Amino acid sequence: MSKLELGPAGILPHSAASLGIFQPEKGTGQELLEGEWTDEDKVYETAAVKLLSRRNPTLFPGPMIVWGWNEEARHKAELSLQLVKEVPGMNIIPMPDYRPIYPKIDPEAVINPCHPNLTVLHNKIQVCVLIGVHCHFANITLKMIRANTNCYTQAWCAYDGHEDALLSIRDLDSAKLIKMTETIKRVRQSMTPWAETPEGKEELEEIAAMKAQNKAEEKESAVLFKGELHEGIPDSE
């Protein structure tokens, strides 16, 4: 079976399926790791190591979690927030909608649905998790990120999983999210997370200072119109 390699893979990377990479069958106790069927426990441990060791770990929650459309979605959202707390310095950038956002998108507030690689590059993200993103859009997003970034993509999918992620977990439910959180806690005891290294601390301080400087105005003091409105076309005499 072909092995999926970390990007950047070029402007038109081959899809994982075209490389002969497919998801393991449900209930086999295996998940997909860099294009290879691997024991589930090893995949969970690898996911934890990557989240703890690579630069600017980020969770990308999609509409199926962000919108809280049923009790299961809300419960997964709560468990996701608990997991993020176990990864020092982990950020959350949602993808609440897939429609283009014009004229400008804030890449620190929301992931760009049409050019997710730009959000990854802007925030210098080297490991990310897609969760609650509809499968058809996750496939596109994963290819674009792999095309021209070195981000280690993880897809935690409630359905069949995603071949184009470097690490894919299928049939994600609350029990699997809890297992992932427990794995992160265990792995963290034997290593120094990126956010707690001198380089990580320095970068996170710089990010915090930048966000404070660019913080939006408070609602009460915001000026709705900062420029003069143009006059209309004068009536003809």
Results as ranks from 00 to 15, higher is better:
residue 35 G to P: 13
residue 121 L to G: 14
residue 51 L to W: 02
residue 232 G to N: 10
residue 64 M to I: 01
residue 206 E to K: 15
residue 230 H to E: 09
residue 126 Q to I: 01
residue 176 K to V: 05
residue 197 T to C: 01
residue 64 M to P: 03
residue 196 E to D: 15
residue 195 A to S: 08
residue 60 F to Q: 04
residue 104 K to H: 13
residue 199 E to Y: 15
residue 44 Y to D: 00
residue 198 P to M: 03
residue 229 L to K: 15
residue 70 N to E: 10
residue 150 N to L: 03
residue 87 V to R: 04
residue 100 P to V: 03
residue 167 L to T: 09
residue 177 L to P: 07
residue 8 P to Q: 06
residue 37 W to E: 00
residue 174 S to L: 12
residue 173 D to K: 07
residue 178 I to G: 12
residue 51 L to P: 01
residue 236 S to L: 15
residue 53 S to N: 10
residue 179 K to W: 11
residue 105 I to N: 12
residue 97 D to C: 06
residue 195 A to W: 11
residue 21 I to W: 00
residue 194 W to H: 02
residue 44 Y to Q: 08
residue 26 K to S: 12
residue 32 L to A: 06
residue 91 N to A: 11
residue 139 N to M: 08
residue 7 G to W: 03
residue 67 W to Q: 07
residue 174 S to T: 06
residue 43 V to A: 04
residue 167 L to C: 06
residue 218 E to D: 03
residue 136 H to W: 05
residue 218 E to Q: 04
residue 40 E to N: 06
residue 5 E to L: 14
residue 87 V to I: 06
residue 64 M to V: 08
residue 121 L to N: 15
residue 124 K to P: 12
residue 181 T to W: 15
residue 216 A to R: 11
residue 155 A to C: 02
residue 228 E to W: 05
residue 53 S to T: 11
residue 233 I to A: 12
residue 99 R to Y: 12
residue 38 T to P: 01
residue 78 E to T: 10
residue 14 H to R: 11
residue 63 P to E: 02
residue 223 V to W: 15
residue 186 R to W: 02
residue 75 H to A: 10
residue 68 G to V: 01
residue 215 K to W: 14
residue 172 L to P: 14
residue 54 R to G: 00
residue 201 K to H: 02
residue 226 K to N: 06
residue 63 P to V: 01
residue 57 P to R: 03
residue 94 P to H: 09
residue 44 Y to I: 04
residue 200 G to A: 10
residue 16 A to R: 01
residue 104 K to Y: 14
residue 133 V to E: 00
residue 126 Q to M: 01
residue 133 V to Y: 03
residue 78 E to R: 10
residue 91 N to R: 02
residue 219 K to N: 13
residue 156 W to R: 02
residue 107 P to V: 12
residue 192 T to V: 12
residue 76 K to S: 12
residue 68 G to S: 03
residue 41 D to P: 00
residue 39 D to C: 10
residue 128 C to R: 02
